[in-house]
């Protein structure tokens, strides 16, 4: 094996092992089913409500939107795992190992997107049984595929940046608030056109809205586009906005990650643990 492939192979192995671990222990399994379970329950309650005079059912609109939102949660888990791995020294171990950092990152991308994919299936299968009015045609899965991949590329590097910037688990908690607010205005549970226009503009800056829109375009009949901004699926705009976020993330993440990694040493990990223990007491 030559040095260049070491990182790739080791990263792949790491990702697979971490993925297996996350589906073979109680706490993680619970988390895998909790969120999709809650979302399925939500859809069950709104499945018969209709949106205005459009004749569209809220449940039908929400299923693909939630799917899009769930892709964005990969950003949050990336960020949280990075912080946790910094606190327990996993990242420092990577730093002490040849090719450890790239292998760590590749592994993380594989395990985060792998468990995300599983979570999407856990949500989608029961969801499709509850909700009526979806349109599953030959274009459905390719569209769903590119929205998923582009969404991941747009959000995972961002998650890595957030994980590097917010060092403690406590600071990670603070990220959740604006994230939830953003979900609230991104047209996930209710069409965005019902919101004031200035809020619509804010939502359209961030990836979540576009991932929801992309998923709706994959799973809903074209007639449903009437409740969207501009009464269109706006694929070109979706690709552009998500693309800009992807490029931005891929440019910034390596710089921020490198700077963060440079600061890691045995004593910084120990000092952080000391602070964390003091908070607990």
């Amino acid at each position: 094996m030559n040095p260049a492939t070491t990182a790739l192979r080791a990263g792949w192995t790491r990702g697979r092992i971490e993925l297996r671990q996350s589906f073979t222990n109680g706490a993680d399994l619970f988390a895998h089913f909790l969120w999709p379970g809650l979302m399925v329950a939500t859809m069950f309650f709104i499945r018969d409500m209709s949106f205005g005079t459009s004749g569209l059912l809220l449940g039908t609109l929400a299923l693909p939107s939630i799917l899009g939102m769930n892709v964005a949660t990969g950003m949050i888990s990336m960020s949280q795992q990075l912080t946790a791995d910094r606190e327990d020294g996993t990242l420092l171990r990577a730093k002490a190992t040849p090719h450890g950092m790239p292998a760590y990152l590749i592994g993380k991308v594989i395990s985060v997107s792998g468990s995300l994919l599983a979570d999407l299936v856990i949500f989608l299968v029961p969801g499709m049984l509850i909700v009526e009015g979806l349109r599953i045609g030959p274009g459905t899965w390719p569209t769903l595929g590119w929205v998923l991949v582009l969404g991941l590329v747009a959000t995972l590097p961002l998650g890595a940046v957030l994980g590097s910037a917010f060092a403690s688990a406590r600071a990670q908690g603070l990220i959740q608030l604006p994230y939830l607010a953003l979900i609230g205005i991104s047209g996930i549970f209710y069409p965005i056109t019902a919101l004031p226009e200035w809020l619509q503009w804010i939502a359209q800056v961030f990836p979540i809205y576009w991932m929801g829109l992309g998923m709706r375009s994959a799973l809903l009949p074209d007639s449903a586009a009437t409740v969207e901004i501009g009464e269109s699926w706006r694929h070109l705009e979706t690709v552009s906005v998500l693309g800009v976020w992807a490029v931005l993330g891929l440019l910034v993440a390596p710089v921020v990650l490198r700077r963060m990694a440079r600061g890691e040493s045995g004593s910084t990990v120990a000092a952080r643990r000391e602070r964390a223990l003091q908070r607990v007491q």
Binding site: Q21, N25, D85, D88, G89, T90, L92, R93, G266, A270
Partner: peptide
Amino acid sequence: LQSWRDHGKW
């Protein structure tokens, strides 16, 4: 190092 706690699930 003086103490390691990493990779607890492995």
